[in-house]
Design a protein around this nucleic acid. Sequence first.
DNA 1: AAGTCGGGGGT
DNA 2: ACCCCAGACTT
Length: 389
Amino acid sequence: MKSRTVWDEESNRTLAQDLVIWYDEEKRLLPWRENTDPYRVWVSEIMLQQTQVVTVIPYFLRFLDWFPTIKDLAEAPEARILKAWEGLGYYSRVRNMQIAAQQIMTEFNGEMSSDLTDILTLKGIGPYTGGAIASISFNRVEPAIDGNVMRVYSRLYCLSDDIAKPKSRKVFDAKVRATMSSERPGDFNQALMDLGATVCTPKAPKCEECPLQKYCESYQKGTMLDYPVKSKKQKAVPKYYLALAMENKQHEYYFKQRPDEGLLRKMWTFPLVEVTKKEYETYLKNWRHYQEQLISPELLVAESSEDDLLEKLTEIEQQIIWQTQPLGEVTHLFTHLKWHLLICYGRLKPDFKQELASDERFLPIEEHQSLSFPKAQQKMIQIMNEKSD
DNA sequence: AAGTCGGGGGT
DNA sequence: ACCCCAGACTT
């Protein structure tokens, strides 16, 4: 018995049949769809990687005009192929395509092989493009799975696999193989592309127009917008801190233990005062200015504090005579954070006395037996040691 | 598995 | 200022 999400009893049609029927009616008329010549399909699929259809059309026509055959492409001067790609971006695509064209000339007698295994040996042709060529040009029952198809299928079957993860690919591959047309695999794949581009769009899918509506599990639940699940490429968020290196009369530095929860819990660092990027850059700029003039840090111990800084400091930190310019800079990368640390040096007023809490210590800078310092703190200590050499 | 490679479009 | 891409290669 067939599943109702693959086969519709009422119309007695399969998902694939409904999709191809829709495609016959609604397919976009595009230059590379005039015929299924593998060279044309290849060129179009490479151009369409990470690039919109409207952008590709004029490039495609000119490319076929300049390089009508695989042989022409293989023999073209490099400057010419780069010119043909100018403005499209991802220029390794066209370099790889020429290498592949040369592969085809020497290894495949000048013709695109109809065997997917052969096709995948060509430079720049991966699973998606290989599947597209094999299905469209050679009628092979092979899926062509890109971000678009994964969006459609994640909604069809409520697949929560993270489409940003390479290993999710096999989940979608299995689903597409189980549902695709064996009669018209090329049209089926192109229909999925059109559906993803025009109906099953990321933000506002037009479900009322969708030929697969009755098969779509997320539509029936109203959860279309929950799919696809895609982890954000968590680029490290920049954070900016002033790291306060405070020295007392005994040449010890003030360290503070981080809280019992969160990042670097219970580790010891200089006090870190978070500032904006703009503030940070202002401090940094001033530091570089003085560094170029080779002014000794000793001469820079100022009588007064930085005005902006003062407001953010704790009681003890306000008892410091601050050097007006930072001592150095350290960056440290975490999985999700990028720390920018500006080392600000200051001396405790000689007459200052205060009880220290259990999470505060004064230690010689070279002392690192009794406390645990995170890497970022070690980097700061190293810089300070270099300065004092 | 993560980083790299351009650019244009939409919001 | 983000997010979305008709991906494949390198490390």
